[in-house]
Structures are given as C-alpha cells and as structure tokens.
Computed example of a mutant assay.
Amino acid sequence: MKGIYRKKYLLITIFLLCIIGWIVLFVPFRSALIFYQENTEQVAAFLPIKEGEEFQLIFKHSIHLKDVTEKYVVNEQQSIRQTEIIFEEFGIGMPANAQDGEEFSYENGKYHIKNLNNQFQQIKLRNGKVVSENRLVWGEHAENQIYLNEFFKPGDWFTLKIENLTLWQFLKGMRIHE
C-alpha cells in the first residue's frame, strides 16, 4: 500500500514541477522592443524596455547623407508613440512643416518637429544597405547607442513591436545592450 502512495505522490510532484517549469519558461514576463525578422514571428533581437521609456531610431538619409532622428515612447497597451523628428535638410521623405498641435522649430542647426502623436502597433524598419549607419538609442538620457550593423546585416528588414517575452525567448534570444 505504501508503495502505491509513494508512486502517486511522486507522479503528482513531477506533474506539478512540469506545470511550474512550463509557466516559468513559456508565460510572458518582461516587456521588450522586439525585432522580428521580416514578416515572421522569429525574434531576431530584443531590447528590454518598459512603459514610459523612450528610444530613438537614427538613420542616415540616403540622399542628404545627414542624420534623421525619430524619437518614440512606449505607451500603455504596448503601443509606440512617435514624439519628435529631428533633421538637417528638407527633401525627399522629410516633412515640410508641422501639423495641427505639433511644434516646428530650428535649434542648433537642426529642424525639430515636436509634440507628435503618431501611434504605432509596429514599425517596419530596414537596416540600410547602401548607407548603413542606422542606430538604436535608449536610456534615461539617451546614453546607450548601438549601430544596427553590430547585430544585423545591411539590407535586413524587421518588424518592431513592444511585446512581453517569455523566459525561454529571453534566454535564447539576442539581447541588445550597450
């Protein structure tokens, strides 16, 4: 009789450990800016980020060869809000003026369009192929910066989303860091 109870408790214990292990590995726990490879659900890289935190995408304009900075903040429900664009020259692909509620200014040799309220669930991003100096900037004072070429090949493209990662994704993925 004791042997049957021991086997029963052993099976229950193994079952509970399996459930706990599954929860720990596969239940999302940490929000991140996730770089999905092309149009897939394959995580190419991620940057841990929380609601209210800001990040910037900086790219070299392929014609003007000047930096263009796009500033974003992570909103509730894991959406992305574009807050500002900074550029040095008008031209192809660049805004000509501010819209209602936005602020246009010229500061330190650069044009700023502030108070943007462009909401995105995702951002499509291509790592420059010809002029490949795309950067990701983050941190409380934008003190962290990486060139995307440190992680990706020129010409690669991604879908960026704010989503929760599981511990399994966190452990097996490529974490972007300074």
Results as ranks from 00 to 15, higher is better:
80 I>T: 06
19 I>G: 05
85 I>S: 04
39 N>M: 11
145 Q>S: 10
50 K>M: 10
151 F>S: 02
13 T>H: 03
1 M>S: 10
148 L>D: 04
162 I>F: 04
158 F>A: 01
83 T>E: 11
177 H>Y: 13
68 V>Y: 01
148 L>C: 09
10 L>Q: 09
159 T>I: 15
112 H>E: 11
128 G>Q: 04
166 T>Q: 07
98 A>R: 03
46 F>Q: 01
89 E>P: 07
146 I>D: 02
54 E>L: 08
120 F>W: 10
110 K>L: 09
175 R>W: 07
119 Q>A: 08
124 K>C: 04
77 Q>Y: 08
130 V>W: 15
29 F>S: 07
35 F>Y: 09
174 M>Y: 06
3 G>C: 07
146 I>P: 02
155 G>K: 03
149 N>Q: 04
155 G>T: 06
143 E>W: 04
64 H>P: 04
80 I>L: 05
108 N>S: 13
3 G>W: 09
96 A>S: 15
150 E>G: 03
99 Q>G: 08
153 K>E: 13
15 F>G: 15
115 N>S: 13
153 K>Y: 13
131 V>R: 12
169 Q>L: 09
32 A>H: 03
68 V>T: 02
44 A>C: 12
46 F>E: 00
23 I>G: 03
73 V>R: 01
77 Q>F: 07
161 K>R: 14
69 T>K: 02
41 E>T: 06
158 F>Y: 11
128 G>H: 08
56 Q>H: 04
31 S>I: 15
71 K>H: 12
96 A>I: 12
158 F>W: 10
112 H>F: 09
38 E>H: 10
8 K>H: 10
152 F>D: 00
163 E>L: 15
54 E>D: 13
46 F>K: 00
68 V>Q: 00
163 E>A: 15
2 K>N: 12
26 F>S: 10
24 V>H: 07
45 A>R: 00
39 N>G: 06
125 L>P: 00
32 A>K: 03
172 K>G: 05
75 N>M: 14
141 H>M: 11
63 I>V: 13
27 V>S: 06
157 W>V: 02
81 R>W: 05
66 K>C: 07
46 F>P: 02
66 K>G: 05
86 I>Q: 15
75 N>K: 14
87 F>Y: 13
4 I>G: 09
134 N>P: 15
34 I>S: 04
94 M>C: 01
77 Q>I: 12
68 V>K: 01
173 G>C: 02
23 I>C: 05
92 I>R: 13
9 Y>G: 13
108 N>Q: 13
4 I>H: 10
150 E>Q: 08
155 G>C: 11
45 A>G: 08
77 Q>R: 14
23 I>N: 07
68 V>S: 00
90 F>V: 00
126 R>D: 05
172 K>F: 02
157 W>D: 06
